[in-house]
Simulated assay, not measured.
Amino acid sequence: MAKQSIFGRISTLMKANINALLDQAEDPEKMLDQLVRDYTNNIADAEAAIAETIGNLRLLERDHAEDKQAATEWGNKAIAASRKADELRASGDAVDADKFDNLAKVALQRQISAENEVKTTAPQLAAQNEVVEKLKSGLNGMKFKLEELRAKRSELLARQKTAEAQTKVHDAVKSINVMDPTSDLGRFEEKVRRVEARAAGQQELAASSLDAQFESLDDLGELTEVEARLAALKAGGQPQGQLGS
């Protein structure tokens, strides 16, 4: 029952579904810190209760040792009183001899009483020692669990921060993909291509105008030659051919 009462106060914590609690918690880090504090406080309460139990055990051990010592001392007193009675009776002093025999009987009664106390407390001591050992073992287990809880807390917080960092990176990458700068470059490139095409068109148009001018010069040359030949005919001469006679 002692073991049950001491560890009963932490049974709820040990059986709690920590994952469910964390899922419901708005701030998992605060929840984990609270679990560590609660478990640490429970260990402190268990230590105080176990210390009290051990103290009671030591008192019982001391009483047991004192009862054993008292049984031995009363036995020695009974022996001494009996011997003194025998000496007095041998010397003819029967009255005093009876007195010492009576003292020996009283001492024997006290010895028997002390021995009974020793016999009664012996199984109690054995049971109490067993309880204390179990309590110590349970306390060590609690301390080990506390270290596991602290380590798990650190691990979970590290994993949470890593996951948050990965989420931020993922969101940043998504933002970069949505706002792709190469799309702006593409639009600028298209604008450049249009400017280049317009310039090429202007050059082509300019070249066409120059060809037309040269063609006009050729036509002008032909008209000039016609006029010259016509003038020669009117003068009564023969028209000059380009090939000659």
Score class of each variant (00 low, 15 high):
residue 224 T to H: 08
residue 186 G to V: 01
residue 165 A to P: 00
residue 209 S to N: 12
residue 125 L to G: 00
residue 141 G to I: 04
residue 152 K to D: 08
residue 127 A to G: 01
residue 130 E to T: 09
residue 206 A to E: 11
residue 131 V to R: 02
residue 129 N to T: 03
residue 148 E to P: 05
residue 194 R to W: 01
residue 181 P to D: 01
residue 205 L to Q: 15
residue 156 L to F: 05
residue 204 E to Y: 06
residue 196 E to L: 00
residue 199 A to Q: 04
residue 125 L to H: 00
residue 184 D to N: 12
residue 163 A to N: 00
residue 185 L to G: 03
residue 211 D to L: 15
residue 159 R to H: 13
residue 184 D to H: 09
residue 199 A to G: 00
residue 178 V to Y: 05
residue 212 A to R: 07
residue 178 V to N: 08
residue 181 P to C: 04
residue 151 A to P: 07
residue 177 N to Q: 09
residue 203 Q to D: 15
residue 172 A to M: 15
residue 140 N to W: 10
residue 129 N to I: 02
residue 155 E to L: 08
residue 203 Q to V: 09
residue 229 R to G: 01
residue 181 P to H: 01
residue 169 V to N: 05
residue 130 E to F: 09
residue 188 F to S: 08
residue 218 D to W: 06
residue 147 E to W: 10
residue 163 A to W: 11
residue 158 A to G: 11
residue 180 D to Q: 07
residue 125 L to E: 15
residue 170 H to I: 08
residue 151 A to C: 05
residue 156 L to V: 09
residue 210 L to W: 15
residue 165 A to V: 05
residue 192 V to D: 03
residue 153 R to P: 03
residue 201 G to S: 03
residue 184 D to V: 15
residue 216 S to W: 10
residue 154 S to A: 12
residue 219 D to S: 12
residue 214 F to H: 14
residue 163 A to S: 09
residue 150 R to H: 10
residue 211 D to K: 08
residue 143 K to E: 04
residue 219 D to C: 13
residue 232 A to K: 00
residue 194 R to E: 14
